[in-house]
């Protein structure tokens, strides 16, 4: 197995590991939406405010999952380590 193949294989493993972080944000958003639906069920007249707060919270919660995606994509498609091999 050549050097480059080893680094590429390890990059693939690293990319797969990094994408696991997306699970957390998914769980968080599911919880937030569930609580929001419950609150709107109890007070339908407040739904504008409820959805606004939930939207701000969920927008903030998304980005950590995306960090992992970015690292995974860098490892797969714009790998900086191959250039260091030479």
């Amino acid at each position: 197995m050549s050097d480059q193949a080893l680094v590429l294989a390890a990059s693939a493993i690293g990319a797969g590991l990094a994408m696991i972080a997306g699970i957390g944000a998914g769980i968080g958003q599911g919880f937030a939406a569930g609580k929001g639906a419950e609150a709107v069920g109890k007070q339908p007249e407040a739904q504008g405010d409820i959805v606004r707060v939930m939207l701000l919270g969920a927008a903030v919660a998304e980005t950590t999952g995306i960090y992992g995606l970015v690292i995974a994509l860098i490892l797969l498609f714009a790998n900086p380590l191959i250039g260091l091999l030479g």
Partner: peptide, 27 residues
């Protein structure tokens, strides 16, 4: 952000557990 707001506005009209799944799939 816009897609998130659309999905949350639809999610609050469902029941709580279904809203959770819907938000997860949209995510």
């Amino acid at each position: 952000f816009h897609l998130l707001s659309l999905s949350l506005q639809k999610a609050v009209k469902l029941e709580p557990t279904k809203a959770g799944f819907y938000a997860f799939i949209q995510y």
